[in-house]
């Protein structure tokens, strides 16, 4: 086993573009669940509309990429409004089911033959982010000897992490304002907030829109990073990744999604490379696992991690156990 290779892979995973993108989407989710108590299990739907909103105008109408990103954000706002109006009045668990269903509805829709002229249906869209890479300021790779990042990855990482930290900064400002106080009171007890004259519905909607826009930006970055989009890469499991990241970091902590994402991707890539090596070197015999099973094992590990976290350390890495014990719901 080549431990150094595994470690360097894991570090790459921990700070690579995916980690940044997932951190950004998880910050949005943290606004929803961590601060407002909304059980949004359809965050991937926001990412989907953000990604396609960005790509479609570029591919179909030849718009510049930045205009595409704007369209993606608007799509997310629209989705939040459409989704929020019927569901935000419902009890929390209904919201969970409605959002996960809505995200699936969107995926079915985007891959259908109806949408094919715009979205490319099951074939997806490719090569639309040239406008982004044209501005790449990095000319050479970052080479630390045991770890290299291509200029392309560096550029996505810069923008991705930059966006994530900006978003976290915005959340910090918002949460420590009276607006954030109302948001947190909605999380604790809607009726109490209502009895003090707060328009709970409006606050939930604002939260849904704001977090959804962050999801959409993350979606746009997914498209930009891979230069290829396919509706089927926006499966519900992405939302579960985000939940794991948020809870791993510690829900309702400003920096938790960032820390959570780094740790999550480190562990995930570590597991992945270690397994790959173990299988490659015959340490794990082929009768037990083959390389094509690694993806499945990885998902199972995420599930197990989510379960154990929730059962034994629901406050995550940064959360306050004392605070969590007060959560009697």
């Amino acid at each position: 086993m080549d431990l150094l290779a595994i470690l360097s892979n894991s570090v790459r995973g921990a700070f690579g573009p995916e980690a940044a993108i997932y951190a950004l989407a998880a910050i949005g989710l943290n606004i929803h669940f961590g601060y407002t108590g909304l059980l949004n299990f359809g965050q991937v739907g926001f990412m989907l509309v953000g990604a396609y909103g960005t790509a479609v105008p570029v591919v179909a109408w030849g718009w510049p990429l930045w205009a595409g990103v704007l369209v993606g954000v608007l799509c997310a706002v629209l989705l939040a409004l459409l989704l929020g109006f019927p569901t935000l009045r419902l009890r929390g668990d209904y919201l969970a089911i409605a959002t996960i269903a809505a995200a699936e509805v969107l995926r079915y829709l985007y891959r259908s033959s109806w949408a094919e002229p715009l979205t490319g249906g099951v074939f997806g869209l490719k090569q639309f982010a040239g406008g982004f890479y044209a501005f790449n300021p990095y000319s050479g790779p970052l080479d630390l000897g045991w770890l290299t990042f291509s200029p392309r990855a560096l550029w996505v990482m810069t923008v991705g992490w930059g966006a994530a930290f900006l978003a976290a900064g915005l959340v910090a400002l918002l949460i420590h304002s009276p607006w954030g106080r109302v948001l947190r009171s909605v999380r604790e007890d809607e009726q109490a907030a209502r009895s003090l004259g707060k328009n709970v519905f409006a606050y939930k909607m604002q939260s849904l829109v704001l977090g959804g826009v962050m999801g959409a930006l993350a979606g746009a970055l997914i498209g930009i990073n891979s230069q290829a989009l396919n509706p089927d890469s926006f499966m519900p499991i992405i939302t579960f990744y985000l939940w794991t990241i948020m809870i791993l970091g510690g829900a309702s902590r400003v920096l938790a999604p960032i820390v959570g994402s780094v740790v999550f991707w480190f562990l995930l890539t570590f597991l992945d490379s270690a397994l790959r090596q173990a299988i490659g070197t015959g340490l794990v015999p082929a009768s037990v696992l083959v390389a094509s099973d690694i993806g499945a094992v990885r998902f199972a590990a995420v599930g197990l991690g989510l379960m154990l976290l929730m059962m034994f350390r629901p406050a995550g890495l940064m959360g306050d156990q004392k605070e969590l014990r007060l959560d009697v719901r």
Binding site: R181, R184, R187, E188, D189, Q191, S252, L326, D327, V328
Partner: peptide, 10 residues
């Protein structure tokens, strides 16, 4: 409220 609604984590 008769059953108090303290906002626990505030």
């Amino acid at each position: 409220f008769q059953l108090t609604k303290a906002l626990m984590r505030l």
